[in-house]
């Protein structure tokens, strides 16, 4: 476990520095303090984690549906693709940091604007994953199906969709990491509950230790979500894993 070794070393250095240098815990709390205080406030952090998870989950689901529909429509119509793709790229140039506060002004402090921000930051990698995946379909496979008398819909279901799945999962993995970060960001600029606003409030009262504790929780959630995509991928496209294992050898 080289990761664990590395993490332990880093924590040990941090701990030693925080204890010996006389630095104020408001500036840099020792990891042991972050852990202790985080545990003491676990219920409060848990309460704030729920809306964050909700926003992440809803936003991500929304983005997956929208991205999939867009990608399929673009795959069927070159004209739609020509019209939409540049707009999709342009949507990614919007600075979220400027947009998120506006969302609060427009839609208030509720869940809606958070979901929208999460969807906005996650749908692009998913769409690109699909579109590139569809493009990777082997031309010969399409010809073969056509020679069998297949129409466009059959070609889509039997070749293009399965061909696109590995690439879709790559996009999904990138997107899911953004989901929680997006939710926290949206909360940071205005919310009643949520890890984002929790961090904001704790920072304002100089509880750096609790900010770091909430960050640790956030990171853990993201990592778990990231790893879970591998699990889902393995269930949905087992053939891809099996083939890759063989060629890796």
């Amino acid at each position: 476990m080289p990761v664990a070794t590395f993490a332990l070393c880093a924590l040990a250095i941090w701990e030693a520095y925080a204890r010996t240098s006389g630095i104020a815990p408001q500036v840099l709390p020792a990891p042991s303090r972050v852990l202790r205080e985080g545990w003491a406030f676990r219920e409060l952090i848990g309460t704030h984690a729920v809306p964050t998870l909700q926003a992440s989950f809803l936003g991500f689901t929304l983005s997956m549906v929208v991205a999939t529909v867009l990608a399929v429509v673009m795959d069927f119509s070159r004209r739609v693709r020509a019209a939409l793709y540049p707009a999709l790229v342009a949507s990614q140039t919007i600075p979220i940091i400027a947009l998120a506060p506006l969302m609060v002004i427009w839609f208030g402090f509720g869940l809606g604007p958070k979901v929208a921000v999460v969807a906005l930051v996650t749908f692009f990698p998913i769409t690109v994953g699909w579109v590139d995946g569809f493009k990777s379909t082997e031309a010969g496979a399409v010809q073969l199906l056509r020679s069998m008398g297949a129409g466009s819909w059959q070609v889509f279901c039997k070749v293009r969709l399965p061909s696109a799945l590995p690439s879709f999962f790559s996009g999904l993995r990138i997107a899911i990491v953004y989901a929680v970060v997006g939710a926290i960001f949206a909360e940071y600029v205005g919310a009643r509950y949520g890890l984002g606003i929790f961090m904001q409030l704790q920072k304002n009262s100089f509880r750096t230790d609790l900010v770091l504790a909430a960050m640790f929780v956030t990171a853990t959630i993201s990592i778990v979500l990231f790893l879970s995509t591998y699990l889902v991928e393995r269930l949905v496209i087992p053939w891809h894993f099996a083939a890759r294992r063989l060629t890796d050898r």
Partner: peptide
């Protein structure tokens, strides 16, 4: 309807 076509590449679908 006339021909059953076998291409050079086997084109077996990996999935």
């Amino acid at each position: 309807e006339l021909f059953a076509y076998m291409p050079q590449q086997d084109l077996l679908f990996p999935w």
